[in-house]
């Protein structure tokens, strides 16, 4: 935490090394978050660039994060994603234009993983933006509920509720109903 505060102090002075470190630390996580929210590589890239632009503008005006840089950046990213979704209703019209195959895997594994990954992505796509945000930020980016509550302008209780409902929705989407007479198997994606 101390090092982050120090990093922020240097960033406020537009120290290039500090800013580069911030960029290198957060570009990919922010991109991941925005990709999952918008479902589109270029949109995610553009919005990630915009997050950093907002960061600089805030610093320039003497504003921006005081302590929790990560939460501040994700909060901006969340706003941008919500605005984007509202503007273009991307959730409803998102093309599946992603490259989903790991080139190191064999073709059978490609097909399997691609299929399973797509199912998860499609299921995520059926969540509300807030629910999706909670799932991504908590499970993928490892943020605490308090941090997520800050990002989503919400309370910890509400975040927990959102997470519970999101997981329940994902389970409904991804886990097939048990066949009558057979025991319920482990979840299969």
């Amino acid at each position: 935490m101390e090092s982050e505060i120090q990093l922020l102090r240097q960033a406020r002075e537009f120290n290039e090394e500090a800013l580069a470190a911030i960029f290198d630390t957060y570009y990919r996580p922010l991109y991941r978050y925005l990709y999952h929210q918008t479902g589109h590589v270029q949109t995610a890239e553009d919005l990630t660039a915009k997050v950093f632009q907002r960061f600089l503008e805030a610093l320039h005006k003497g504003q921006g994060p005081e302590k929790n840089l990560k939460a501040w950046l994700f909060k901006v990213a969340h706003h941008l994603a919500i605005d984007e979704l509202r503007r273009f209703a991307l959730r409803d019209h998102m093309p599946l234009d992603e490259q989903l195959i790991d080139v190191k895997l064999g073709m059978d594994e490609h097909l399997y993983i691609t299929h399973e990954t797509e199912r998860v992505h499609l299921a995520l796509n059926k969540l509300t933006p807030q629910q999706r945000a909670v799932i991504i930020l908590h499970f993928l980016e490892g943020l605490e509920n308090a941090e997520i509550a800050h990002i989503l302008h919400s309370t910890i209780g509400a975040v927990k509720a959102l997470q519970h409902r999101a997981l329940a929705t994902l389970r409904r989407q991804l886990i097939p109903d048990p066949v009558e007479g057979e025991p319920n198997e482990q979840p299969v994606l």
């Binding site: 991941r32 990709y35 999952h36 590589v41 992603e98 490259q99 989903l100 790991d102 993983i113 399973e116 990954t117 199912r119 998860v120 992505h121 995520l124 799932i135 991504i136 499970f139 993928l140 997981l167 994902l170 389970r171 991804l174 886990i175 979840p187 994606l189």
Partner: peptide
Amino acid sequence: FEEQITNAMRNIP
């Protein structure tokens, strides 16, 4: 289940 979701989420372009 959560781990499977997380792993799937890592697999993006």
